[in-house]
């Protein structure tokens, strides 16, 4: 079928990658389901706490949540539900669908991460490139010290310091919350700092490597201005390795987001994930794990796609097969 219709090879590439995601997704569903059911703690005790001694209420809740069914049947119901976008009911907010609990948070966390990335990427790349170009000068050394500080100081320490200075002492920014532009400043900055530091370090390393290459020497020999040598030739060549690290960078962003959301009281997926773990609200935790897995799979796909589009050598190799 695919051979008779002339499908551009790039779509075949995307389709093939998406088919490859399905087994991973299935595995994630099984693993999260089993993990949640292997954990100590009965959902009924979560919902009723001390009042779970009241047998009538306990039985009623058990039936409402389908917990009296055999395990395999519960899994089928769960898997079918997920495919329809139904992640079941929350244990903590009794009777409330998980999708309802996550509805607003799903828009907030990606926005936060994107804003942080939008700040971290240009900042980090600039710092890294500058350090590489001015290697072993005071510029390079200063930048490296700042980098190491940004990577080593825990983000909650940075956050506390910034909140203390800007919100409590200077009173120009609010302490916490989400919704206005001023409330977004501190969380985005705190989230961006470790990522920017990491990107800067990578950029510096890649840049140093790129500057050793023959084509750089050729470009200089041709008489090209240094700015063009760096800006056009070297930079483009570090774009692909930087993007390949995008998965790691995003992973770091997500785990940092959990802490930032807690400190700044942002009702995003990170905070809900942490709260649900402590509250033993497993359906919510499971749903977030599944969501993040899907999210990461798509990030990787997007990165691979971007790399293939940017680098002609990769494009030729990938699409030929």
């Amino acid at each position: 079928m695919l051979r008779s219709i002339s499908v551009p090879p790039i779509f075949k590439f995307i389709l093939r990658r998406m088919m490859g995601m399905l087994p991973i997704l299935a595995l994630v569903l099984v693993v999260t389901f089993l993990a949640a059911h292997a954990l100590p703690g009965d959902p009924v005790q979560v919902m009723l706490s001390d009042h779970s001694a009241n047998l009538q209420m306990a039985l009623r809740l058990r039936a409402q949540y389908g917990l009296d069914q055999p395990l395999w049947r519960q899994f089928i119901a769960y898997a079918v539900g997920v495919l329809h976008g139904d992640f079941g009911l929350s244990f903590l907010q009794v009777g409330v669908p998980v999708t309802e609990v996550l509805r607003e948070a799903v828009t907030i966390s990606p926005l936060l991460a994107l804003a942080a990335l939008a700040l971290a990427l240009p900042l980090g790349t600039l710092a890294g490139v500058l350090a590489a170009v001015r290697r072993n000068t005071w510029v390079d050394h200063t930048i490296i010290v700042v980098l190491v500080a940004g990577l080593s100081i825990p983000n909650f320490a940075i956050a506390t310091f910034l909140v203390y200075s800007f919100a409590l002492k200077l009173e120009i920014l609010p302490v916490a919350g989400w919704g206005s532009l001023e409330q977004a400043v501190l969380p985005v900055v705190v989230l961006a700092i470790p990522s920017a530091a990491y990107i800067a370090r990578l950029a510096r390393t890649f840049m140093l490597e790129a500057l050793q290459q023959d084509y750089i020497r050729t470009a200089r020999a041709k008489g090209l201005r240094e700015r063009l040598v760096i800006g056009r030739h070297a930079l483009r060549n570090i774009a692909v390795p930087l993007m390949t690290s995008a998965g790691v960078i995003f992973g770091g962003l997500v785990s940092n987001a959990f802490v930032v959301e807690t400190i700044f009281n942002i009702p995003g997926l990170g905070r809900i994930a942490i709260d649900s773990i402590f509250a033993r609200d497993y359906p919510v935790t499971m749903a977030i794990v599944v969501l993040f897995t899907v999210f990461f799979l798509f990030i990787n796909l997007a990165v691979d796609f971007a790399c293939v589009m940017i680098d002609p050598r990769l494009r030729a190799r990938t699409l030929a097969s």
């Binding site: 909140v163 609010p174 302490v175 916490a176 919350g177 807690t262 009281n265």
Partner: peptide, 17 residues
């Protein structure tokens, strides 16, 4: 206001929020 983290809540109280 829903504030799970008590240190954040105390800071908000200090800041008049």
């Amino acid at each position: 206001l829903i504030v799970p983290n008590l240190d954040t809540a105390l800071s908000q109280y200090d800041a008049g929020e």
